[in-house]
């Protein structure tokens, strides 16, 4: 078997999230591949535009929804620029799922707080839907999401949907100055909002993903609230090529982020050399 050969995927839906971020809904072209495909929340894939190369993103849709996968990406490099030009009906490549996953089973029966910033909502969204699709198996669910400005918020329709649900608490915030005239959400940086809105730490798990600076300042807040390092889960991003634990660029110490990660507890991360 050629582990580097992607499956062909048809782009069946494209959603413009922000000026530079899109979400693709993808379906396997091969029916066997579609049938055999299974993944867990937190896993990622390698997406290719043939002739341009591959890029690594998480699978942003939930494993509880079988017929398709979704990914969200921000235009930054060569491949994401090429992906932006893709239209509905076009074919792209996908390899995956790779890496470990969020311990959904261990989270059952607990309060879950999701904390995300910017495009960091993509991997968290996968867990959110996974949890919401099995809602009765979890206790209180809190979603705290922030972006620089209202224009930078992704998954806007879903944020609305979550806000309107009575069985979860959703707090959306934008950085000061990032609000527009009609903004009804919070204004402030994520760490401050977490301090106000997070549930008590007892029997709770936090799932956090966002820019490094957000994580850096939110961690002490969570610790202050009583969250233990082993109850804080995050997903690391490092540059990857193979996704298979071979090519050698994502390793942090003796950990291959693509194989041993990308999901780590904060306790595990603290033990790693600071090379992520």
């Amino acid at each position: 078997m050629n582990i580097y050969k992607p499956e062909l995927m048809e782009v069946v839906e494209i959603i413009d999230e922000t000026a530079d971020t899109k979400t693709f809904k993808l379906k396997f072209k091969d029916t066997d591949a579609a049938r055999n495909f299974d993944f867990k929340a937190g896993q990622f894939g390698e997406y290719s535009v043939f002739g341009e190369g591959e890029s690594t993103f998480c699978i942003a849709s939930a494993p509880t929804r079988k017929e398709y996968i979704e990914c969200s990406f921000k235009q930054v490099g060569k491949v994401t620029t090429a992906l932006r030009k893709v239209s509905i009906g076009d074919t792209i490549g996908f390899r995956g799922p790779y890496g470990n996953h969020f311990p959904i089973d261990d989270m059952k029966g607990k309060n879950v707080v999701f904390i995300a910033g910017g495009i960091g909502l993509a991997p968290v969204r996968c867990v959110i839907w996974n949890v919401l699709d099995l809602r009765d198996q979890f206790k209180d669910v809190t979603i705290i999401y922030g972006a620089r400005s209202t224009a930078d918020l992704v998954y806007k329709r879903e944020l609305e949907e979550w806000k309107n649900r009575s069985d979860i608490k959703t707090v959306v915030t934008v950085d000061p100055g990032g609000e527009d005239a009609g903004w009804k959400g919070e204004i402030g940086f994520v760490p401050a909002i977490v301090e106000k809105a997070a549930p008590k730490a007892e029997n709770s798990v936090a799932v956090i993903c966002g820019p490094p600076v957000m994580i850096k300042y939110t961690m002490p807040v969570l610790n202050k609230l009583g969250f233990k390092d082993e109850d804080i889960l995050t997903t690391l991003e490092n540059r990857m090529k193979c996704g298979l634990g071979k090519c050698g660029r994502c390793n942090v110490g003796n950990v291959y982020v693509c194989k041993d990660g990308p999901v780590f507890t904060y306790e595990q991360i603290k033990k790693l050399p600071a090379e992520y």
Binding site: G51, G53, K241, C242, K246, C247, R249
Partner: peptide, 9 residues
């Protein structure tokens, strides 16, 4: 043994 993966014509 580290390697890169690139597309070319």
């Amino acid at each position: 043994h580290c390697f890169d993966i690139v597309d070319e014509e």
